[in-house]
């Protein structure tokens, strides 16, 4: 194993051991937060642990500073991924207020039923290097970018793009957002995605044209899912006629969308 992942370090080993230890004890779940920071002294670490525990919600927070990799690690016994992520928001505030944060942060959650493997732990640690400065990356057991199916998403609504970008990213897709039809087609041409999600009412080039052009392009395997406000009977029929794989009407259930994507891509 060690040979496959050259990035593996002492940090991975220690974390792997610690998390496994925690999961043996009374805890069924354990969250981990890692952040690249400047050096932090023991006193400050204690302070952080106390502040994160101020409501008594995180009884056994362990904070350690890893000299060799230059990162601080918070171990949160008993916390699920969601609450770890939430605690990470506070942790980030603390680190930022103390002017310590220099790189990105990453969070992960492990449970008794899904204990960490060394590989997973290594992926998690390498996530820290890959994440943008001051961004909180979530490790969810997703595959590395090269294996991930690529999805181009075209929608004029930036909020929706942002939301689905994160959601689908967590499901292990490599998402490329575009706000209009032309930009979308450009992405399709250059990245040859496995799937395209598009709105019908787009500036410049509408959804029908996008379906039509993709169906008639060399990249015929690319599936098109229409996600639109504008789904009256006529539109839906037209989409299927043109070769869309699926039509979903907004407001939509992201859960349903994720399930449908999964079916289409497997």
């Amino acid at each position: 194993m060690n040979t496959v992942y050259p990035a593996e370090s002492g940090l991975t080993q220690r974390l792997f051991a610690q998390v496994n230890d925690t999961l043996k004890a009374p805890w069924t779940e354990c969250g981990v937060i890692a952040a690249s920071t400047h050096g932090i002294n023991r006193h400050l670490l204690h302070n952080f642990a106390a502040r994160l525990n101020k409501d008594g919600e995180n009884p056994a927070v362990q904070v350690e500073y890893e000299e060799d990799t230059g990162c601080v690690v918070f171990l949160l016994p008993g916390q699920s991924l969601a609450s770890t992520h939430f605690t990470a928001l506070s942790a980030k505030n603390l680190l930022q207020d103390a002017d310590l944060l220099i790189g990105g942060m990453s969070v992960a959650g492990f449970s008794e039923s899904d204990p960490p493997t060394e590989k997973a732990m290594n992926d998690f640690v390498s996530f820290l290097d890959g994440s943008e400065p001051s961004e909180i990356a979530v490790y969810h057991g997703q595959p590395r970018a090269s294996e991930a199916p690529t999805v181009v998403m075209i929608d004029p609504n930036a909020d929706l793009l942002e939301f689905l970008n994160i959601r689908l990213g967590l499901q292990g897709y490599d998402v490329m957002p575009a706000q209009d039809g032309k930009e979308g087609l450009r992405l399709v041409a250059s990245f040859q995605p496995d799937l395209v999600i598009t709105e019908l009412a787009l500036p410049a080039l509408d959804g029908y044209q996008i379906i039509h052009r993709i169906r008639n392009s060399p990249n015929r395997d690319c599936q098109v899912v229409v996600l639109t406000d504008q789904a009256v009977e006529q539109d839906i029929c037209k989409c299927f006629e043109l070769g869309a794989a699926d039509v979903i009407k907004k407001p939509f259930s992201p859960k349903e969308l994720e399930a449908r994507l999964k079916r289409l891509l497997n």
């Binding site: 009412a201 787009l202 500036p203 410049a204 080039l205 509408d206 406000d229 504008q230 009256v232 006529q234 539109d235």
Partner: peptide, 11 residues
């Protein structure tokens, strides 16, 4: 015409 074809309107 291009601009008219991308209106947000059902039918």
């Amino acid at each position: 015409v291009h601009s008219l074809m991308t209106l947000e309107f059902p039918v």
